Amino acid sequence: MSRQHHRPMTPGAGFFAEIVGGTDPALVTEAADRAAHLLVRGARESADAAVADRLLHLADTEGIETIAEVWSGAPADSLAGALWRLFLLRSWVHAEPVAVAREFEAGRSRAQVARVVAGVADPPGPEQLRSMVDEVLRGITSSDFADVLLRAAAFARVVATGRAHLAEPSEAEVRRMLVLSEQLEAAGHSELAHRLQ
């Protein structure tokens, strides 16, 4: 008995149109990258001084969490990835200012250069740390973005140093903060070299 051979069906545009699925990941990534570009490059090019304050409070008032969630998957050496890390750092400082102040205090005498670069008031209480992190993020629109990244990296390094000398944080928590510092610093150097996209 001979079998007839048929050409396999070639799925065309109509076939794919019938597939029900989620949002195209490539489009989501593109939108997240575009939003990051507009927030950093577009904000800096704006002459409106209020842009800095709007950007600073975006996470609190305008639902940046959705975009930030998409940024969370972006590589650390990208604009979107750098913004994710900055907003993550700010959110943490605002959520746990007392713990942050304690960790920063424990690290500041051991990471002198980073403490100076971070620019935190002496002594660093919870309110001073909130002000510092807000000032750093305000710099996204008003100063060199590389400076913003390097100051945030220095702050995270002081905190990582402090965590390493306190009994409570685990080694994994210390390592996470150190990695955050290293990623922000690398992004800052990429920005200085005009390679941060």
Rank of each mutant, 00 (worst) to 15 (best):
M132S: 12
L184G: 03
T23N: 08
P25A: 13
W92G: 04
R138S: 14
E96K: 08
V117S: 08
A193P: 15
G12I: 00
V117D: 05
H165Q: 12
I64R: 06
A114K: 07
Q128T: 05
D33P: 01
Q112V: 14
V116I: 12
V40K: 10
T23G: 05
R115S: 12
V70H: 05
A59S: 02
T23S: 14
V100E: 07
I64N: 01
S142G: 10
E65C: 04
T23D: 13
A154I: 02
E65K: 10
L27Q: 05
R175P: 01
D77M: 07
I19L: 15
R115C: 08
D134G: 03
A193Q: 14
E173H: 10
P126G: 04
G42T: 04
F15I: 00
G22A: 12
F15K: 01
A80C: 07
A187P: 15
A186L: 10
R157I: 00
F155G: 10
A156W: 00
E173N: 14
V51Q: 01
A47W: 02
T66F: 13
A160T: 04
A187H: 06
T161M: 02
V70F: 00
S170N: 06
E45P: 01
L55G: 06
L196W: 13
W84L: 09
R176E: 14
E127S: 11
R115P: 00
E62N: 03
M132I: 04
R151Q: 09
F145Q: 01
H194W: 09
E135V: 03
S46M: 05
L196H: 10
A121I: 06
L88Y: 07
T29C: 05
M9N: 07
D147G: 07
E30P: 03
D147L: 12
A43I: 10
S91N: 09
E135W: 06
H165D: 15
V116C: 00
D122N: 12
I67Y: 04
A36P: 13
V148I: 06
S2P: 15
W71N: 02
A32I: 00
A26S: 15
V113I: 12
E173F: 08
A32M: 08
H94P: 06
E69G: 13
D144P: 00
A153F: 02
A47N: 08
M132V: 11
R102L: 09
H194F: 15
P8Y: 06
T141V: 07
H194I: 12
W84E: 09
R115F: 01
L38M: 01
E30K: 05
H165R: 14
L180V: 06
A193G: 11
A154S: 14
E69I: 04
G188E: 09
Q4V: 15
A193M: 15
A118V: 11
A68C: 06
R130T: 14
P124T: 02
A43E: 09
A118R: 03
P75Y: 01
